[in-house]
Design a protein around this nucleic acid. Structure first.
Lengths: 257, 257
DNA sequence: CTCCTTGTTGACTCGTGTTCAATAAGAGTA
DNA sequence: TACTCTTATTGAACACGAGTCAACAAGGAG
C-alpha cells in the first residue's frame, strides 16, 4: 500500500478553481453524467464482468481499467467496492463457487444416499456442461501460491464432496457415520479430484464432438442436449455411473484396510 | 511490445561523457565487477531461483527485481534470458514438469504392467512427498486462465498417465492395446485427477501428523521416512494400493460399457 | 428548498515490467 | 602481450497498470 502525496487542500482548491475557469471557456467539453446505482446492483454488475473476464484470460490480462470501462465507471469506483485487484478476484472466485454449490444444493435431501449421489452428480455434470469455462477457471485457474484463493477452492471441493457423498460411507458394509480413517479421508479427497478431472475431460470430449458434428452436418445451434448421445463423447449418464461405481469401489477399498 | 523512446546516439554519448567526468570526481563510488557466466549456467541459476519463489508465493508477489537481486544480476539480464516475466514463469513450470516426469521415467520398463504401475506410483508418491510445494505449484497453476500454462500442465498429466498406466488396459479382460472408448478415455483422465488429489491430501496428512508428533515428542528433524507409519496419516504403500485398486476398478467399469 | 450521505470521478503517484545503448569479460589469434 | 570479436551484462530510462484521494454530485429525507 503506497502513501500517495497529493496537493494540500489550498493547492487543490486553487487547481479546482483553475479547472472551472478553463471549463467555462470550452463549451464543447461536456462532463459525463454520473450514474448512481445501489450498492448491491453495482457490486453484482462488477462481479459479473469479472467472472466473464477471469474465465477467458489470464489474471494479468484482466486489468482494472478494462473492467471499469466495461462497467462504464471510473477505476476509483472499482476500488470503492474492492480494496485491491486481488480482492476483486477473490470475490469473483467466491461467487463462482457459490453458484456451483447452489446448483448441487437444489438436489432433494430426503432420498437414499445412492439416489442422492446420482442426482447430485447429474446436477454437477449439468452445471459443468453449461458453465465449462467458469468451472475450469474456478477449479484450475489459480494465481499461484495464494492462501486465500487456495482456501476458497479447497472449501469448495470439501463442500462438493460433503454434499455429493453424504451418508455414502454409512451405507456401505463396515462404514460409520463419521470418517475417522485417514486413508478413507485421502480416498474421498481423491474421489473429488477424480470427479473434477473426469467432468472436465467429458466436457472437452463433448465440445470436440460438437465441433466435429457441426462441421460435417452444419450448425445445430446451442440447443443441443447436455446428455445427448454423441459418437465420440460419453453421455452424462455414463459419466455419472462411472463416478458412482468408482466412489463405491474406493470407499470399499479404503474400509478394508 | 512498446516502442521506447531513448536518447539519440549523440545525446547518449554526451551523457555518458558527463557520467565519466562525475565518476572521476568520486573515488568512493566503485563500479561492481561483472560476473560473466556460461549461458547454460546462468539460465539454470535463474530457473532454480524461479522454482523456489513460485513455489512459495503468488505470481504477483514474485517480482523481476527480486529474482535479479537473488541472482546478483541486473533486471536487464533476466530479460536477456527470458523475453517476459510470463515466459520466465513458463520456463520454470516446464522445468518442474520435466523433473517430475524424469523421476517417473526412472522406473524400469521391463516388468509386467501391474508391477510397473506400483513402482511408478511409489516413485510418484515419493517425489510428491519430497517436493510437495513445487508439485502443488505445478499442478495448481499460477496466472489464471492461460492457454500455454494449461497446455504444459495438461501435457504433464497426459505423460504421467501414459507412464503410470502403460498397458494396464491391455492387461484387463476385454481390454485392447489402444484406448478407443471415449468413456475409457474420460475414466483414465479422471484417474490421474484422483492420483493428484489423493497425493496432495496424503502429503498434507503427513505434514500435519509430523507437526503433531513433533509437538508432542520434540523435534525429530527432516530425516523422517516418507513411507513411515503415522497414526494419523496413511502410509505410502496404502495410498499406492488405493490408487492401484481404483485404477483397476475404473478401467473394468469403463470396459463393461 | 436545504442538508446530508455516500456513490462516483479523474488527476495523480509509484512500483513493476520492459527496453536498449553502452560496457566489459573472456576467448581466440597473431 | 596486444588486439579483435563476440556476447553476456549493466543501469538508466521508459511505459503502464495498480492504487489513492480530494472534490463532486446524485438522490433521499425533512
Amino acid at each position: 500500500m503506497r502513501l500517495l502525496r497529493y496537493a494540500s487542500p489550498v493547492e487543490a482548491r486553487t487547481k479546482a478553481r483553475r479547472r472551472s475557469v478553463e471549463k467555462g471557456g470550452r463549451a464543447d467539453v461536456e462532463p459525463r453524467p454520473r450514474v448512481r446505482l445501489e450498492v448491491d446492483e453495482r457490486r453484482s454488475q462488477l462481479i459479473e464482468l469479472g467472472l466473464a473476464q477471469f474465465a477467458s484470460r489470464s489474471y494479468d490480462d484482466v486489468s482494472i481499467e478494462l473492467i471499469a470501462q466495461q462497467a462504464g465507471i471510473s477505476k476509483g469506483l472499482l476500488y470503492h467496492y474492492f480494496p485491491t485487484k486481488r480482492a476483486f478476484y477473490v470475490a469473483c472466485i467466491r461467487e463462482a463457487a457459490a453458484r456451483l454449490l447452489a446448483r448441487i444444493g437444489e438436489v432433494p435431501r430426503d432420498a437414499p444416499p445412492l439416489d442422492r449421489l446420482r442426482a447430485g452428480l447429474d446436477a454437477y455434470l449439468g452445471y459443468v456442461r453449461a458453465h465449462a469455462r467458469a468451472y475450469v477457471a474456478l477449479m484450475r485457474g489459480g494465481i499461484g501460491v495464494d492462501p486465500e484463493i487456495n482456501a476458497v477452492i479447497d472449501e469448495t471441493r470439501a463442500s462438493l464432496l460433503a454434499q455429493l457423498t453424504s451418508d455414502m460411507a454409512v451405507a456401505l458394509p463396515g462404514g460409520s457415520d463419521t470418517v475417522t480413517s485417514p486413508l478413507l479421508r485421502v480416498a474421498l479427497r481423491g474421489w473429488i479430484g477424480l470427479a473434477e478431472a473426469a467432468s472436465i475431460a467429458w466436457v472437452e470430449a463433448c465440445v470436440e464432438a460438437d465441433t466435429r458434428t457441426d462441421a460435417s452436418k452444419g450448425r445445430r445451434g446451442e440447443g443441443a442436449e447436455a446428455g445427448a448421445e454423441r459418437p465420440n463423447a460419453p453421455s452424462g449418464a455414463e459419466v455419472r455411473e462411472l463416478l458412482t461405481q468408482a466412489l463405491i469401489a474406493i470407499i470399499e477399498g479404503a474400509l478394508k484396510r
